Amino acid sequence: MTQFSPEQFAAGQKSHVDTFFNLTNKVFEGVEKLTILNLQAVKSIFAETQETAQKTLSGKDPQDLLKLQSGLTQPAAEKAQAYSRHVYEILTGTQAEFLKAAEAQFAENNHSAQTFIDTLTKNAPAGSETAVALLKSTITAANTTYDTVHKATKQAVEIAESSFDAATTAASKAAKDTATQTSRASKAA
């Protein structure tokens, strides 16, 4: 039987540490993007609230307030949708980085396992063919399972994206309809 050398073990550990820190950096990048987005949103909301308060206080009659209210509904809904879209993009971007790293790690581990099996097969004592065949079969089954799970995950992400897009479109239409109804009601009053 072959044994792993200390150099092989150290290289494997270095690879795992590199992957860990790479993924940790990706998490921090995602958190940083979310923090910047949230700060921008708060800053924008504060400025808009100040502007709305000034317009409200300068209104001369209730009709002005109704017009102001109807003019705020749709933009607020659109901004909320834009914010949600940005959050979604940040999260899916971070997830894509994790998937890419996982795929690279799996490929590296798969290559190492295959190299180990090949070395083991060459150096296996007589009569161990059954054990080697079982080991090869196990690795093939693990690879097949990984491929199946990977494809299912991709499909689930695609379905989630299309559902998010459909929900965003429906919410946008509902906001426009509400704004139109509010506008008509304020004109009629």
Rank of each mutant, 00 (worst) to 15 (best):
A80W: 09
A41C: 06
L99C: 08
K33A: 14
V27W: 03
A126W: 05
A107N: 07
G127K: 02
N123S: 11
A124L: 06
S128I: 00
L135R: 01
Q40H: 04
A124D: 10
L39S: 05
Y88M: 05
G71S: 01
K79D: 15
I90F: 05
L72Y: 10
E103P: 00
Q54H: 05
K26S: 12
S128Y: 10
G30N: 08
T24Q: 12
T19A: 13
E51Q: 06
V132L: 10
E78Q: 08
Q69S: 13
I139N: 04
E48D: 15
Q81T: 15
A126C: 05
T140V: 09
D18I: 10
V27L: 01
L23I: 10
H111M: 02
E32I: 00
T52W: 08
S44N: 11
V17D: 12
V87S: 07
L23F: 02
Y88G: 00
T121P: 03
T49L: 09
F21N: 07
A126H: 07
L23V: 09
K79T: 11
L34R: 01
S44L: 05
E103Q: 10
F46D: 12
S70F: 02
G93I: 05
V17P: 03
I139P: 04
I36D: 15
E48P: 11
V132M: 05
Q63K: 14
E129M: 01
N123P: 00
A77G: 14
L134A: 12
Y88E: 09
K100N: 10
S44H: 07
E97F: 04
N143L: 02
Q69H: 12
D118G: 13
G71Q: 07
L72F: 09
D18W: 03
T92H: 03
A102C: 01
T49Y: 08
L57A: 12
L72C: 03
K60N: 12
S128Q: 07
L72I: 00
Q54T: 09
L39R: 02
T121W: 01
T94C: 01
H86Q: 14
K55F: 08
A104D: 15
N143W: 02
H86C: 03
I117P: 02
T49K: 01
P75S: 06
I36E: 14
E51L: 00
Q54D: 14
L34A: 12
T24S: 08
E29D: 13
A131C: 00
Q81P: 01
Q95L: 11
E51W: 03
L68F: 07
T145C: 09
H86P: 01
K100E: 13
A41D: 14
A107M: 00
T49H: 08
N109W: 06
E29V: 01
A104N: 11
T121L: 01
P62Q: 04
Q63D: 15
T121C: 08
D61V: 06
V87F: 07
P75C: 04
V87N: 03
N110D: 15
N38Y: 13
A76W: 11
K79C: 08
K122A: 15
F20S: 12
V87C: 06
A142Y: 05
Q74E: 15
T94N: 10
A77K: 02
K55L: 14
T145V: 05
K26Q: 13
Y83T: 11
T140F: 02
G127Q: 02
N110H: 10
V17Q: 09
P125W: 03
Q105G: 08
T49Q: 11
L134I: 08
E89H: 04
A47E: 15
I117G: 06
K33W: 04
E51D: 15
T35E: 12
H86G: 11
G127W: 03
A107G: 04
